[in-house]
């Protein structure tokens, strides 16, 4: 077993209205960043897990997202990184 640090991104699904992202986008525009096109505000989680291999750690992360961390009705998730902790 080794310890891995998982980086997990959870974001609003494409097509779901994201008023928080819209608000941030508007604020950026008013602050002089007209080039901003699309902002989506989600969550970023870091968790450490014990697993036999990086793939096993990734599989654990996926299961966690499907079961608890993301709501499949409204959110997408991505396992951004699996690194030795």
């Amino acid at each position: 077993m080794a310890r891995y640090r998982l980086s997990i991104h959870i974001s609003p699904r494409r097509g779901i209205l994201d008023p928080q992202g819209q608000a941030v986008s508007d604020a950026l525009h008013s602050l002089g960043f007209p080039e901003v096109r699309d902002v989506r505000v989600g969550r970023y989680l870091v968790a450490e897990v014990d697993a036999a291999t990086p793939d096993a750690a990734r599989a654990q992360a996926t299961a966690m997202c499907e079961k608890l961390l993301a709501n499949p009705v409204t959110e997408d998730f991505a396992i951004a990184a699996v690194e030795p902790a």
Binding site: A23, V24, D26, A27, L28, S30, V41
Partner: peptide, 11 residues
């Protein structure tokens, strides 16, 4: 109005 204060709060 044009730039509600919550935008800044959100950011």
């Amino acid at each position: 109005g044009d730039t509600p204060a919550e935008h800044a709060v959100a950011a």
